[in-house]
Design a protein around this nucleic acid. Sequence first.
DNA 1: CCCTGCCTGCTG
DNA 2: CAGCAGGCAGGG
Length: 271
Amino acid sequence: MPELPEVETVRTVLLPYVVGQKITDTTISLPKVLANISSQDFITKTKQRTITHFTRRGKFLTLHLDNAAFIVIHFRMTGTLTIEDKGTALDKHTHVILTFANQQQLRFIDSRGFGHWWYFEAGQSDTSGQLLLGPEPEQITFAYLKEKLTKRQTALKTLLLDQHIIAGIGNIYADEICFRTQIRPTRRGDSLSDTELQRLLDTIPTVIQEFIQIHRVPFDVYHQTKGTSYQKDTHRAVYGRKGQPCQKCGHPLQGTRIGQRSSVFCEHCQK
DNA sequence: CCCTGCCTGCTG
DNA sequence: CAGCAGGCAGGG
């Protein structure tokens, strides 16, 4: 569910409440969330550790601890993080709780339970998958896009969703990027012209940065909506607007499926 | 490459 | 009530 802009929102909003906090107690109520460690080991190893940094790579978040161990978090479809005072009612599907010395808690809530947490000791190799990610959207170059996209017969949308090519793009922003560049999401990578590649190069970081700004909210708004204020996003041009008029030409937006994912585009504007 | 499974909750 | 959901790993 959350893509790069939403994950970045979680990070920036919660950063001041997380960095510098010492973990005094850890609770795990859904052990399968922990991908590479038992609940008991995780509880033991996190106790008395202080969080020194909170970083993002693609859709992954990392809590860095003061002994150089680190915790990697991925939200998948429905995961989110909240900060709550200890003792306040738990939301349904609260699976992990880190209690801090200041009596606040970092809580992981995930209704579908697809999200994962990994724990790695200092120097241990990170097997979460984030080492295999492609560059962040703002790091891509024309040469890189040409190399990665134009050798492939696969649909552009599927390539945009491939985290090994570019990190952080999901189903919404893949559609938004295709609309903004006026390219059909079904177009094969090897059919893309240099002009279209240049449009993708310009548009991909722009769209991602735009939505990071759009989703940035004060802590109290984030808190009230459990970190899901972005769900009522009215700034999207195509995603979730099947059948509605295209903002450019008024033609009803077309819905289809590409690589098992729902997709929306304008058959008039996108070539 | 395509397909399934993982889950719960919301919408039509 | 079926169908679908913003993600990804694993298997064929």
